[in-house]
Nucleic acid binder design. Sequence first.
DNA 1: ACCGCCTATCGTATATCGACGATTTACAGT
DNA 2: ACTGTAAATCGTCGATATACGATAGGCGGT
Lengths: 111, 111
Amino acid sequence: MVKTKAKAVECGSTGEKLTLPDVTCAKEFSKLAWAIAHPARIRIVRLLLSRKACVCGEIVEEMPLAQSTVSQHLKILKESGLVQGEIDGPRICYCINQKVLKQLKRLVANL
Amino acid sequence: MVKTKAKAVECGSTGEKLTLPDVTCAKEFSKLAWAIAHPARIRIVRLLLSRKACVCGEIVEEMPLAQSTVSQHLKILKESGLVQGEIDGPRICYCINQKVLKQLKRLVANL
DNA sequence: ACCGCCTATCGTATATCGACGATTTACAGT
DNA sequence: ACTGTAAATCGTCGATATACGATAGGCGGT
């Protein structure tokens, strides 16, 4: 049921203009927007960007939230594709997926 | 209870970089992201952008949703500031608030 | 003044989010 | 093999989102 879905989203990646107010990519777009539609997740994204990478524990320390809650937000971010986690020794190293972040920026910029 | 809240949000409007992964503006940002975190609302925004302005009835016709549901989404968009509605004769003319849209674009671009 | 159209709001049901503590799983080191 | 740490998952709860039909309000035209 988890399905992580790290599959690269194609929507808008070719740079076309998306002029149609169609259903086109609205779902993928909204999913990405959803990922940053919470203050805690925005903080996490900024944190990851400022440090390039981060283990979960560091994130927990920076936020006034329980570990399990942070883990939930990380899961949402991973499912959106914005964040990816690599097992790096004993811990898990989270980092921003620049490709997806760029896609999000492009989608918003093309609004 | 409606309160439209067209108040200009200051966050990021001066163009500073927002390097801190702080709580700064995370709430305002997430609120804007929230506004487009639903396929139907993205469609509405695109529709409004492609036509410059639009009455509610036209939007309802383009979407597979009940009129009351569309009205709800419009309310959310209005509360976020992204959309504003002006009473134009018998109907209500909705349009994008370019200032807020630009702010959203800036916030995302500065991620 | 009445009627019909357009939009907003109310009330309601269902689904999902957001938060937490408790538990389980994975891995490094002893 | 055992232990301890790190992270994910489970189970639960209240709050909120989403959707709809029904109803209320505003405005033009007859």
